[in-house]
Amino acid sequence: MNNKVLLTGVSGWIAKHTAIELLNSDYEVLGTVRNDSLIEQTKETINKHAPIDNLSFVELDLLKDDGWNEAAQGCKYIMHLASPFPFKVSNNRNSLLAPAVDGTLRVLNAGLNANIEQFIVTSSIAAMFRKPIRSNPYSFDENDWTDENWKEGVGDYFLSKTKAEKAAWELMESKRLKNKLTVINPGGVFGDALDKKGGTSIEYVKQFMKGKFPAAPKWGILISDVKDVAKAHVACIGNTKVGGRRLIVGKEVKKLIELSQIMAEAMPEYAKKLPKKELPNFMVKLISFFDSSAKTMIPDLGITMQTDTSYAEDLLGLKFNPAKGCISETAKSVVRLGLV
């Protein structure tokens, strides 16, 4: 029985968790890497959590056509997770579009040429909730889209996720194959860092625990457990109910000050370094002139996010984890790995 999955960007943090979930569920995984120097570390990390007999690798570039058609041949499913998510914000809001948009279309077209049975693409709530006019609190669901024309509020990452996801839906709809595509839309993803490569959310936890934030910006986000995100990808396979759907994965919205409190409880020896107060909005705006990582929060400062993810739990047959566990796990793992 063919149960081979082409998993793009396998060296990425969420992708490694997804590969572990796939391998432990007896799927064969062909993981793509942009550079073969990433293979050994990725293999070593995954092998600590899953058997790797059914894991193989191929070096492919999202910016080049070479090799994608060949990689997709013989696979039954494609999970496209590879996409840039920088910690810093670029002044060029189009800087991430080539790998995000062109890369997504390159992967999907290779899959269509290979008659892939099912496509599962990782997007983000970043493609859903950023709009210039919102109530407070504001709610969003799978029918909402980020306003890509809002230049002040939609920077490089938000624009890339929105345009890439829209391009995926437009391609599949043009082929009348919309039901072959499911998109996973997590919020801020937290959990076990696995190794020192980490991801952007890991970087935020490191900065907090190193005492880089004297106070926390008044900013909140839907928290997604990385294990839930990985399980959601695998739960889509062969699930006819999820075709043509955007699945928001996460349980609770938490403010940064609440994340700080959870970290302090999990790792009391770091409590002194963690912020205990909230930062006035004008201070965050001031800091953003010197530290571009603060820019991404500014449009949402002081606004409370709301969303109901129970529909996704029902469709996937999963119960998403509360925020506390994955935030604690992130804090413990960055200490264990010597990242702080």
Score class of each variant (00 low, 15 high):
95 S>C: 09
96 L>D: 04
96 L>V: 07
96 L>R: 01
96 L>C: 07
97 L>C: 06
98 A>V: 14
99 P>K: 01
99 P>T: 11
100 A>D: 13
101 V>W: 08
103 G>K: 00
103 G>D: 13
103 G>S: 06
103 G>E: 07
105 L>E: 03
105 L>V: 03
105 L>M: 09
106 R>Q: 15
107 V>E: 13
107 V>Q: 11
110 A>N: 12
110 A>M: 13
111 G>D: 12
111 G>S: 09
112 L>G: 00
114 A>C: 01
116 I>A: 07
117 E>A: 14
118 Q>S: 09
119 F>S: 12
121 V>L: 14
121 V>G: 08
122 T>Q: 07
123 S>N: 08
124 S>K: 08
126 A>Q: 12
126 A>S: 15
128 M>P: 02
129 F>Y: 14
129 F>W: 12
130 R>K: 14
131 K>Y: 00
132 P>K: 12
134 R>Y: 00
137 P>H: 00
137 P>Y: 04
140 F>C: 08
141 D>E: 01
141 D>G: 13
142 E>Y: 08
142 E>F: 05
144 D>L: 05
144 D>F: 09
146 T>M: 06
146 T>C: 05
147 D>S: 15
147 D>P: 13
149 N>W: 05
150 W>H: 04
150 W>L: 00
153 G>V: 00
155 G>Y: 09
157 Y>G: 11
157 Y>K: 12
158 F>G: 12
158 F>V: 03
158 F>E: 08
159 L>G: 03
159 L>S: 11
160 S>T: 13
160 S>A: 15
160 S>W: 14
160 S>L: 10
161 K>V: 03
162 T>V: 08
165 E>T: 08
166 K>M: 04
166 K>Y: 02
167 A>F: 10
168 A>F: 09
169 W>L: 10
171 L>H: 05
171 L>Y: 05
171 L>E: 07
173 E>K: 15
174 S>C: 10
175 K>Y: 09
179 N>D: 14
179 N>L: 09
181 L>F: 02
181 L>T: 07
182 T>L: 03
182 T>N: 06
187 G>W: 10
189 V>A: 08
189 V>N: 10
191 G>Y: 04
191 G>E: 06
193 A>V: 15
193 A>D: 10
194 L>N: 00
194 L>I: 07
196 K>L: 09
199 G>M: 01
200 T>N: 02
200 T>F: 05
201 S>N: 04
202 I>F: 06
202 I>W: 02
204 Y>E: 03
206 K>H: 06
207 Q>F: 08
208 F>K: 01
209 M>H: 06
209 M>Y: 07
213 F>W: 15
215 A>E: 11
216 A>Y: 05
216 A>Q: 03
217 P>H: 03
220 G>I: 02
221 I>F: 15
221 I>E: 15
224 S>L: 08
224 S>E: 11
227 K>E: 12
228 D>C: 01
228 D>H: 03
229 V>N: 02
230 A>T: 12
